[in-house]
Computed example of a mutant assay.
Amino acid sequence: MVMPGIDAALAHAVAEGDKGYIKEITGVNLLPFVYLGAKHMVTGYDHILFLFGVIFFLYRLKHIALYVSLFAIGHSTTMLLGVYFNVGINSYLIDAIIGLSVVYKALDNMGAYQRWLGFQPNTKAATLIFGLFHGFGLSTKILEYQISPDGLIPNLLAFNVGVELGQLTALGMILIVMGYWRRTASFWRHAYTANVWMLTAGFVLVGYQLTGYFVS
């Protein structure tokens, strides 16, 4: 048995205040669910790291829009279906897979697959597939809310709108920072190092979540 403090520290879980509020309300509550969706995405460091990796070497807005849309389609699909059909995955395991998505993208940006495999895996397909896993991470968090079935569909759609708004907010901040950085001479000198740090962060996330799974 794990001490509550340790379990809370290791889990990428729903804030207790938010969880208590959602348990108490019934019916259609669009704005609270929009807020919760946006909050989860903006504060979801694993989602933001993956998004950062996806757009790291993308310059044209149409390419950014394509990849971000594929990611959004993936996580929206599994989030909605996962909650509707009550399909939950152990939060530690799904968050470990999300950590692996960060590792995958960092290695992709470093050109590892071309060196190791002799070809480049389909980056669009990878973004969509990992988006599906990120969506299961979101659905698992929503199921932790134990929300009322009364008004479930509108509330769920509102949560998804919040997630997309949070994603756009995070994307906007990333693009602003990347826009300034790319104009400097240090970008290409430090791009590889930045992805090594992202790779390290991904492995730390995986280890963090697997530790939580085995000690919980």
Rank of each mutant, 00 (worst) to 15 (best):
Y67R: 13
I73C: 11
V103R: 06
Q120Y: 12
G82C: 10
A8D: 14
F136I: 02
V28W: 12
M79A: 13
A8V: 04
S76N: 10
L58G: 00
V102Q: 07
S101A: 04
A9P: 04
H75R: 02
L175I: 01
L171N: 02
T200P: 03
A13Y: 04
G20Y: 01
M198L: 15
L66G: 02
S76P: 00
N122W: 12
N195C: 06
D46F: 08
I153T: 14
A185P: 10
R189M: 08
V163L: 09
M110C: 07
V28G: 08
G82K: 07
R115Y: 11
L61R: 10
G99Q: 08
A191P: 08
G5R: 07
V14D: 06
F52H: 07
K62P: 07
G37F: 11
H63E: 14
Y213L: 02
A112V: 14
I153R: 03
A112W: 14
K39V: 07
A65K: 05
V163M: 07
T26N: 15
A158H: 05
G111E: 09
I97V: 11
G17E: 13
F130P: 01
L49F: 13
A72R: 06
L128R: 08
L61W: 14
A106K: 11
T123F: 11
D108C: 05
K105A: 10
L205Q: 05
A11P: 00
I98C: 02
G44D: 09
V177I: 15
A191W: 14
G202D: 02
D95R: 03
D46L: 01
G135S: 07
Y113H: 08
V83H: 01
A65W: 13
A65G: 10
V204R: 08
D7F: 00
G5K: 11
E16R: 12
G17L: 03
L152F: 07
E144A: 15
T127D: 00
R115S: 09
L128D: 01
F71K: 03
Y208P: 00
T184D: 06
T77Y: 01
I176V: 15
A9I: 13
G20N: 14
L10G: 02
D46A: 00
T169E: 07
G27D: 11
T200C: 02
D95F: 00
L66V: 01
L199S: 03
P4V: 06
H134I: 09
Y145R: 08
I25M: 12
A9F: 15
G53P: 10
T169I: 13
H47W: 04
A158K: 04
V42F: 10
G20M: 10
I73V: 14
L66R: 14
G44R: 00
G166N: 04
A106T: 07
G137C: 09
I174K: 01
N29L: 04
M1L: 12
I6R: 10
T43C: 01
H63Q: 14
L143Y: 11
A201W: 02
A194C: 13
